Computed example of a mutant assay.
Amino acid sequence: METFQIIFLALIQGVTEFLPISSSAHLILPNQVLGWPDQGLAFDVAVHFGSLIAVLVYFRKDVWHLIVDGLGGFKTGNFSDEGRLAWLIVLATIPAGLAGLAFKDFIETHLRSSAVIAATTIVFGALLWWADVRGERKHDLGKLNWKKALMIGAAQAIALIPGTSRSGITMTAGLMLGMKREAAARFSFLMSIPVIALSALLLTLELLETGSVPWGSIFSGVVLSGISAYLCIHFFLQFISRIGMAPFAIYRFLLGGALIWLLLAN
C-alpha cells in the first residue's frame, strides 16, 4: 500500500471500531469500490492492536477494578458491582467467540461483499435509530443482569457479518433493554476488550504462519489507529447523551444508499 492508503485506513479503523457504523465495512470498501490493494493480514493485526491499546488506556482504571474485583470475589464470596460486571462481560463474550469459530470461514468466503454491506448498513442503521427512539433509556450498568448481558452478547455475535457494526449492534441491544445511552456505550466498549484481544491473537497466529511481516506498515497502523480510537471513545462518550444515535443512522443510510447506487451503476 501507498503511505496515504496506510494513513487513511488506520485512521478509519480507529474511528469506526467504536462508532456504530462498522469498521469492517470501511476497511473492505476501499478495496472493492476504489480498487485499492487489499491491506493484508499484517495490517489487520496492527489496527486491531491499536484499537485494543486505545480502549485499555482509556478505561485503564475500570479495567484494573474489573480484574481485581472480578477475581477477588472468589476469595470473599461477595462480588462488588465491578466484580459482577467483569463476569457479565466474560459471559457476553462467549456467543461471539463460539459464532466466530463456527462461521468465520463461511463469512469470509460469502459475506464480504458490497451488496451484503449495503444491506446490513441500512437495516442495522434503522434498528439502531428505532432502539434509540423507542428505548426507555433509564437503566445504568448497575441494573444489568446475566440475562441481559447474554442477550447483548448474542447481538455481538451478529456483528461478524460485515456492515453490521459490533459497537452498533451491542448499543442497539442495550438500548432495547432499557439502558441509558452512556451505559450502553460504556458496556459496548468494555465488551470490545476481550473480543478485540481474541481477534488480534488469532490474526497474529495466522500472520506468524505466513512468515512475512511488513514492520513499517504495522507500526504506522498501531499508532494511528490507537490515537484515532482513543479520541473517538473520548468524544463519543462526551456527546452521546446529547446527540443520540440519529446522526450515525443517517450516515449509515447515506452509505448504504451510495453502495446500492454504485452496484446498480456497474
Rank of each mutant, 00 (worst) to 15 (best):
I169Y: 02
I28V: 14
L190F: 08
S114A: 10
Q156P: 04
I107C: 04
P162I: 07
V90I: 14
S212T: 13
S167M: 07
G211C: 01
F4M: 12
L11E: 13
G226E: 12
A157G: 09
L259C: 02
A154W: 00
L264W: 01
E108I: 02
F59T: 02
V90N: 05
A46L: 05
R137S: 14
L34C: 00
L254W: 05
F253W: 10
H65N: 11
K138C: 13
P194R: 01
A149I: 11
R166A: 08
Y251D: 06
L29Q: 13
I12T: 15
G70A: 01
E182M: 11
L262A: 14
P37I: 11
R186V: 13
G216E: 05
Q39V: 13
A258Y: 06
I28Q: 06
I161Q: 08
R60K: 12
G226R: 07
I94D: 08
D105S: 10
M1E: 12
K75W: 08
A149L: 08
E136A: 15
L259A: 05
T120L: 10
L41E: 11
A154D: 00
L160T: 09
W87F: 01
G211L: 00
L71D: 01
T121R: 08
A155W: 06
A265G: 10
A155R: 02
I196M: 05
P37K: 13
F189R: 08
F59V: 04
G70L: 05
D44G: 11
E206Y: 00
A200Y: 00
T3S: 11
L9R: 12
V123H: 04
F18S: 14
R242F: 05
E209G: 00
